[in-house]
Design a protein around this nucleic acid. Structure first.
Length: 685
DNA sequence: GACTAGGCGT
């Protein structure tokens, strides 16, 4: 995109409002050598209303440029112009716009800021605009006004061209155009987006010097800017110094703390808010959801309802996501019903959230129903539904839906193919996967990324096609990442390919030394080959590096309560009954052939004890609790944070047979539907 | 003539 050519002057720093405390690790210094000179406001008076310094004001002593050389616009021109403005308001394309522009030029108004401002506005910020054209126009104007500059700032911001926005701002000053209150919100946001810390601080100085200390919009954007620099102390200072804070100031600060991972401080701010809007409630609820603190999200949501605050689409989305996190389908269903009952707009984001909730809660049928109900389906809804089929091991359905999507002329994107390929991998559809991989490139012109390669390696590896998988990796145009290598490692585990597994395992561990799962996998590969010394070495390496195994937990929703279990845990108030039920359950399945499987446990415990922790894996406790609390025939839905271990998998199959129950377990990477002694994954996970 | 806060998935 063409950007104005500007000649720059030597630099000179100005003093900053808040010292230089921000550490600029992410700061890009010296990107705007011109900037400091232009932004020199040392000599500017700070009185309201905004003024500029003497040098600048000279320009403003000149009479404003008149629309035409002869003087004011005559009456017939005025009428014509009025009609033009009306037409422009409903203009829908650049072709049409250029015709209006031509007429304005014909009227001799090519330098008239009022008329040209409307043209620039369309180009810069309309959906069918052309920012480049706006820039060309601005370069031809002898005296573009603040409105025109501000409009183009917004245009730059829409395209995330923050550096260009900042450059144009300095050009505005060089052209002696005084910023107004609409100038700073977009310019400050540009600094935030571009992580331009030095420039941001200087522009902050300008906000004050130009007299916008009391302008809520400018100040709120400054809060946002410092928060995005993760300089919460400065954000807080701006907030504290504001003569009048509004609900946006509070909400911005809450989000700032939350996005810097300081959720508890966000809560403190939230608690002190004088009045709360749904946006403020949601900012806090989302803070909990984003940090997996789902229970706190639920309890805040209850509080919100007690305060008679109605939920809107944002709160609904956050809470649906909390339901997804906990596997709390009934609660999620309640929110979905609420959305429908209250005609809350289901936009593309909300629709993916709804579908994802049902998919991840194991209710594929309900997800399909929700998907079919959507009045219009964006690509993300299709992606989400295809991904749902994939994780449920319904590869054929995923492909069928993908073909339907193509049939309805919805353009598949990068993610679509990640999900379709992952569906092929989960269902072992090798030939189809190879075809889709080619189809993606040849028909849709999407070049494969690491995720696509990861899926292909997963697919080929699971099918035992190691040579082809290794060859594919060697052909990758980029470095294979840990996802790709991890997929190969997983395949080595399944097929007991010790030699390759050892090589890849070591590599993967070095790529991700803090991920305990990788060590466990390598240790298990050694264990299957009875290489006990190597098992011990991996374990020692883990200990030496202080890498802890992720504690496993499982969650089951019974009635309206969500119950969480950790392996061997006894924190549940009914733990005695639960353990008794688990013992009964294990005795039951032993009678139909259950033999505890110990292979997949990292052997860091004595032989004798090996059996017990397996008996009481969180998943078995959750199933025991489910059997205890649910009616016969009711489906048990369990969500687990780790992958199902081989023993639990075998046990779950037999439990489903012994008790004649359908059990749906969501693990870290997919779903297992246990029914009549078999699993939907065909023991292939 | 116009500006700022909160949501999803891969």
């Amino acid at each position: 995109m063409p950007v104005n050519a500007i000649s720059w002057e030597p630099t000179k720093m100005l003093s900053l409002p808040y010292g230089n405390k921000i550490c600029g690790s992410k700061n890009k210094s010296n990107r705007f050598p011109e900037f400091n000179a232009v932004l020199d406001v040392q000599s500017m008076p700070s009185n309201d209303p905004p003024q500029c310094n003497k040098t600048l004001s000279k320009r403003f002593e000149m009479p404003n440029p008149k629309p035409d050389a002869q003087g004011s616009i005559n009456e017939s021109k005025k009428v014509h112009l009025h009609k033009l403005h009306q037409g422009l308001a409903s203009c829908s394309s650049m072709a049409e716009l250029k015709q209006y522009h031509a007429q304005i030029v014909k009227l001799g108004l090519q330098a008239d800021n009022d008329a040209i401002g409307r043209i620039v506005k369309f180009c810069a910020i309309s959906r069918n605009g052309d920012l480049g054209y706006a820039l060309e126009i601005i370069n031809t104007l002898p005296h573009p006004d603040a409105f025109i500059y501000n409009t183009v700032f917004r245009g730059f911001l829409q395209f995330r061209l923050s550096d260009d926005c900042i450059r144009l701002y300095s050009q505005m000053l060089r052209n002696s155009v005084t910023p107004n209150k609409f100038t700073f919100p977009p310019v400050v946001r540009a600094c935030a987006f571009g992580n331009s810390i030095d420039e941001g601080k200087q522009i902050h100085a300008q906000v004050l010097k130009f007299g916008f200390r009391s302008d809520g919009f400018s100040q709120n954007n400054l809060i946002h800017m410092y928060a995005s620099f993760e300089s919460l102390d400065d954000a807080r200072k701006v907030f504290d110094k504001m003569p009048q804070r509004d609900v946006v100031s509070w909400t911005t600060l809450i989000t700032g703390f939350s996005q810097s991972g300081r959720v508890d401080e966000a809560r403190e701010v939230f608690e002190t808010m004088p009045e709360k809007t749904p946006a403020s409630w949601n900012a806090m609820i989302a803070a909990y959801v984003q940090t997996d603190r789902f229970r706190e999200a639920f309890s805040l949501f209850d509080e919100m309802r007690l305060n008679r605050v109605e939920l809107d689409k944002f709160v609904a989305a956050s809470m649906l996501s909390a339901c997804t996190g906990l596997g709390a389908m009934k609660q999620g269903e309640w929110i979905h019903d609420y959305i429908k009952r209250n005609a809350i707009e289901i936009d593309p984001k909300l629709s993916t959230t709804i579908i994802d909730m049902y998919c991840k809660c194991g209710a594929l049928e309900k997800a399909i129903e929700a998907f079919n109900e959507l009045p219009s389906k964006g690509v993300s809804a299709w992606n989400c539904m295809i991904g749902g089929f994939a994780t449920h091991g319904k590869g054929e359905n995923a492909i069928e839906l993908f073909e339907k999507m193509e049939g309805e002329s919805v353009k598949p994107d990068y993610i679509t193919f990640v999900n379709v390929l992952s569906a092929c991998a989960h269902s072992g559809l090798v030939e189809k996967g190879r075809y889709i991989f080619r189809h993606m490139v040849e028909t849709h012109g999407i070049s494969p990324g690491t995720e696509h390669y990861g899926c292909m390696v997963d697919l080929l590896g699971r099918a035992g096609l190691f040579d082809e998988a290794v060859k594919l990796i060697s052909e990758m145009p980029m470095e294979p990442d840990v996802g790709v290598m991890g997929a190969l490692l997983g395949a080595c585990k399944i097929h007991k390919n010790v030699e390759l597994g050892e090589r890849i395992g070591k590599k993967v561990i070095e790529l991700e030394p803090e991920n305990s799962g990788r060590y466990v996998l390598l240790a298990n590969i050694y264990a299957t080959a009875s290489k006990w010394d190597d098992v011990a070495n991996v374990r020692k390496l883990m200990n030496d590096r202080g890498v802890k195994k992720t504690p496993g937990f499982s969650v089951i929703e019974v009635g309206s309560t969500v119950n969480e279990f950790i392996a061997g845990g006894r924190a549940h108030p009914e733990s005695r009954e639960i353990y008794a039920k688990v013992d009964e359950m294990l005795a039951g399945i032993r009678s139909i052939g259950y033999v505890p499987e110990t292979e997949s446990v990292l052997l860091d415990i004595g032989e004798e004890d090996t059996e017990n922790p397996l008996f009481y894996h969180s998943e078995k406790l959750a199933i025991g609790f489910g059997l205890l609390k649910s009616k016969p025939g009711e489906v048990l839905r369990i969500t687990k944070n780790l992958r199902v271990c081989k023993d639990c998998h075998e046990a779950s199959k037999l439990i489903s047979k012994f008790y004649n129950r359908e059990i749906i377990v969501r693990d870290r990477s997919r779903f297992h539907h246990f029914e009549e002694g078999a699993c939907s994954c065909n023991d292939y996970w």
